[in-house]
């Protein structure tokens, strides 16, 4: 019996550029051409000043764990538990939902430094994160 496949991203008019950048191993964030605000997910305008003049920028791929949850029950046959879902805050500011991989769930903690690690998945490249070795972010999160 073939293994069940996990759900895949569903690029749309707003997110196609983001997912295409991921295939080039670039974590792309949106930047407002007027006020400079950096944000995710991509949108039709700047969520701060509503300017439609948008550009994109390559993220350093580094950030910190803002929060995380350990899935102990399997909800989808393509995503067997346990695995870690995290809210990652990039050093550039935007936050995104991703996974922390390459470590035991017990090693993950809020404020741990993380670095993006692209993983191939059925024609997509998913921006997941691994624990980094740098110091905790200067901002120290919201704590």
């Amino acid at each position: 019996m073939p293994a069940a496949k996990p759900p895949l991203p569903q690029p749309d008019v707003l997110t196609t550029s983001f997912w295409n950048a991921c295939r080039r191993r670039v974590l792309e964030i949106s930047v407002c051409g007027d006020c400079g605000h950096r944000f995710l997910p991509p949108g039709p305008c700047c969520p701060r000043c509503w300017s439609p003049r948008l550009a994109s920028q390559e993220s350093s791929g580094r950030g910190r764990v803002d929060s995380f949850a350990v899935y102990r029950r399997t909800y989808h046959p393509g995503m067997p538990a346990p695995y870690v879902v995290a809210l990652v805050e990039l050093d550039e500011g935007p936050r995104l939902i991703s996974n922390i991989v390459g470590c035991a769930p017990e090693e993950v903690a809020i404020d741990r430094r993380v670095e993006v690690r692209f993983e191939a998945a059925d024609g997509f490249s998913l921006p997941r994160f691994a624990l980094g070795h740098g110091k905790e972010s200067a901002k120290g999160g919201n704590s």
């Binding site: 996990p6 759900p7 895949l8 991203p9 803002d66 929060s67 995380f68 949850a69 350990v70 899935y71 909800y75 989808h76 995503m79 695995y83 879902v85 809210l87 939902i97 991703s98 996974n99 809020i110 998945a121 997509f124 998913l126 997941r128």
Partner: peptide, 18 residues
């Protein structure tokens, strides 16, 4: 969903952890 973030329970788990 591509990251396995399913259901309201995952979302509230983030809040509880914080």
């Amino acid at each position: 969903a591509a990251f396995g973030f399913f259901g309201a329970v995952g979302l509230h788990a983030l809040a509880a952890r914080r």
